[in-house]
Design a protein around this nucleic acid. Structure first.
Lengths: 340, 340
DNA sequence: GCTTTTTTCGAAAACGTTTTCGAAAATTCA
DNA sequence: TGAATTTTCGAAAACGTTTTCGAAAAAAGC
């Protein structure tokens, strides 16, 4: 309908299309007078540039692409996503970009690179989970497009722009908090043995132990696979046998809930019999019984810095690849208790 | 980088570009043998079509645009959004579409129509809140683009594709539940006097009253403006004075929380002294003290049907403009009690 | 005055496809 | 076998811009 193109404006203004294009795009070789005239006419006619024709030449679209979630579960599987998403939307929006969510499942060649090329995005943000993380050809992506990863890398030590929580610091503070409360035997309900974040959260725990001269005991770390059920099983088994553990530090809130489930089944009270602290600070943490002490990830700030890095990349302001860790914060609620 | 275009394939295959294009797009006037050859070469060369060049001609992009939120608060201000979003993403994704989130704040002419035209989306979903709802030129949009609204209309009685919760039904069932429990004097904490949804939720309440021969009392409806604070104030004022109300039905969970705040301040116990039921079933409703009986909105189903309607529209399967109301479900928790 | 420089503009190519239409080749028909 | 039909292909226009490069016009220099 809106079939007013640059040619119509040219005719109306009595100039060539190139002159119109230049006037519209701020070229300096146009007389001020004609520039104003063209602009006026364009406004009168309600001219809207055709972004495809333009993109065909400039190879830019003013949109940045976002991959998130697993390939199968394409929804907001993690409560984190909407926070990431909201903050990214804000900062790229202020910079004049729209957001393209890759949801099309019918692609023939579903490589990240080709998807981005096909749609012509100016940059990409990846928030990957699950098996999609390990797409074998993923490295091709950041060689061609400005790219920044959030939270997790396809494989560790990858040389790529990356922003995450400072998992080690967060874990350190959680463990230190427990130690400060007098706990000496702390069970570590870790995630898995693969992800960097999982590793880092064990590392912070070790570091706190070390600082207070508490020996690290291999038997006190269990792997809950970031699942409530698995954490439940592991905790149930552990606490069914004699032990002198007075606290558990879980690498995620859902796993913390899993161990609290197990504790309840074993008639152990939280925090009276055993203290527990989680990681993430998901919404439910505020409302659990008891409300969970946990380490809060600054999701909005993570999204913001990722977006800002990407914008820098797109505008070529910065060539260096950056790895930024946002410090999380311990939030103390009711699931921990001092011990003599 | 990936500079393999249709011409390279043509040269490689020894045919013309038009032949390649037709082979790639399933035209029937290509010999099977050459079609296969072209397809093979395209795959070998890792050919990726340029959607901008294509879109320039076909005027389609295989992306559908979504507007959501207020103009200022461009994040996921409502917990509903991520549900809507996830379900929309799933259904359009299966149909071969990507999602474009309009976040760019730097547009010169920020009319919905021009934004959509500029980006060349094939259809639009609008989930608008706040003042953005009343953009004066919004009607232009659905005259040009396949469009479906979710939850709220720019103005009532607008002839446009629209999917929402069946607010009247939900309110009816909530009120009926209270009546079934023996309550006869039920305070209605309504939303505002503008939105259709707000109106409908009063209407359902009236209807239940009517069915049971309970007279409608104008003095028993207060307006909480969908705000916890305002609902708190209204409830505080109401319950400070003598009355025989034994239950309140709020038009949103947050308002229900507001009245529970007020009740607590006045030393009235929920549900012993007064029962309360909400509307929406937000996440917190499960965890409040006591857990809130409320009417659950089927957000995923709403998003799905909106997306499906849009796809029908795009594929011209359906010319009629549809208005669909998804029935919500009463979920009874601990905030209501029987009364003799 | 004429030359040189600067300012202002336009012609045309390019971006990578799709699609129409006609022609050539192959096949069928009689 | 020749005509009619069908199958298979390609030339070229079109989509709506941007951008290069050269030319015309105006201004400056002398």
């Amino acid at each position: 309908m809106s079939t007013i193109d640059i040619r119509k404006i040219a005719k109306e203004a009595g100039v060539s299309v190139s002159t119109v294009s230049k006037a519209l795009n701020g070229y300096k070789d146009i007389k001020e007078e004609t520039r104003l005239r063209i602009l006026r006419i364009a406004k009168e006619l309600d001219y809207i540039p055709n972004v495809m024709a333009r993109g065909l030449i400039t190879k830019t679209t003013n949109t940045i692409g976002v991959f998130f979630g697993d390939q199968t579960n394409s929804g907001f599987d993690s409560p984190f996503l909407s926070d990431y998403f909201a903050s990214i939307k804000n900062v790229v929006g202020e910079a004049g970009y729209d957001l393209l969510i890759f949801s099309n499942q019918k692609r023939k060649t579903p490589s990240f690179k080709s998807i981005c090329y096909e749609k012509g995005v100016d940059g990409v943000i990846l928030i990957l989970t699950g098996k999609r993380r390990t797409d074998e050809k993923i490295h091709e992506l950041h060689e061609i497009f400005p790219t920044v990863y959030i939270d997790s890398l396809p494989f560790n030590k990858m040389k790529v722009n990356f922003v995450e929580s400072d998992n080690e610091l967060g874990a350190y503070e959680a463990a230190k908090h427990l130690i400060d409360l007098g706990h000496r035997n702390i069970l570590k309900m870790a995630g898995d043995k693969i992800a960097k974040s999982s590793f880092d959260r064990i590392e912070g725990y070790k570091q706190a132990l070390d600082e207070f001269g508490i020996g690290f005991n291999e038997d006190l770390v269990k792997y809950g696979q970031y699942s409530r059920e698995t954490a439940y099983e592991e905790a149930k088994e552990f606490f069914s046998r004699p032990n002198d553990v007075t606290a558990v530090f879980a690498s995620s809130d859902v796993m913390a809930f899993g161990v609290m489930d197990a504790l309840k089944d074993l008639d152990l009270k939280v925090p009276d019999d055993v203290s527990v602290v989680g990681f993430d600070d998901i919404e439910e943490a505020k409302y659990s019984g008891p409300p969970l002490t946990t380490v809060h990830q600054q999701r909005l700030e993570i999204g913001e810095t990722a977006a800002n890095i990407l914008l820098d990349l797109i505008q070529k302001k910065d060539g260096a690849t950056r790895h930024i860790s946002i410090p999380p914060q311990l939030v103390t609620r009711k699931s921990c208790k001092e011990v003599m």
